[in-house]
Amino acid sequence: MTFEQIAQKLGRDEIWVAALFYGQASPLDDAKPTKEEVQKLGSVLDMSSLDDHFHEHWYPDRGQLGPMPPQDPTLYRLYEIVGVYGYAIKSCIHEKFGDGIMSAINFSAKVEKIQKKGADTVRITYEGKWLPYDFHTE
């Protein structure tokens, strides 16, 4: 089964499902799997022992993905995109929102396969709550 197929059965996002499989789904903002979701996932995967892994004291691994820069070609390209276009993206964000950051806590991502000029093309969408820096002078 694909992450998308599993996500459809759980009523969750495919990125969340993939993050759960890699131990990276956050326990914040209802992102930690509920007991019901763990049972449903076990049923979808024909596995009954998931309760032993995803319990109330389970927390995700938020460490690095490995050596930096990443050795995996896909991860390296994502890293490279930020290296090459990071300041341009940052500047456009600040022009539109002012000084602040996009939250990685209240965050979602979407991966789509689209056709552009006759070629398979990857579209990645990041969405995060805007958190303005709040500078107070006394």
Rank of each mutant, 00 (worst) to 15 (best):
G23R: 00
I93P: 04
V84H: 07
K113E: 15
C92H: 15
Q5D: 10
E95A: 10
D51H: 07
L131M: 12
E95T: 08
I124L: 10
D51T: 06
P73N: 04
F135W: 13
K110N: 10
T34A: 00
T137A: 15
S48G: 11
R123A: 10
K35E: 14
E4H: 09
K129M: 12
E37R: 03
M102P: 03
G100E: 01
I81A: 09
K113D: 12
K113R: 15
Q64V: 15
A25E: 00
L78A: 09
I101C: 05
K35G: 13
A119L: 15
T2F: 06
D61P: 00
L78K: 06
L45P: 05
V122W: 09
Y87N: 15
Y76I: 08
S49W: 10
A18W: 04
F3P: 01
V82Q: 13
A88D: 14
I81C: 06
G118Y: 04
Y85D: 10
M47A: 15
T121Q: 08
W58F: 03
Q8W: 02
Q8L: 06
Q39M: 12
S103L: 01
G83C: 01
Q5G: 08
G100H: 01
M47G: 08
D13I: 02
F54V: 00
Y87C: 15
K35S: 15
S103A: 02
L50F: 00
D134M: 10
P132I: 00
Y79H: 02
S48E: 11
L45R: 05
V38T: 04
K35C: 11
P132M: 02
Y85M: 12
R77F: 10
W130C: 04
I105V: 14
Y126G: 04
P67V: 11
F54N: 01
Q39H: 13
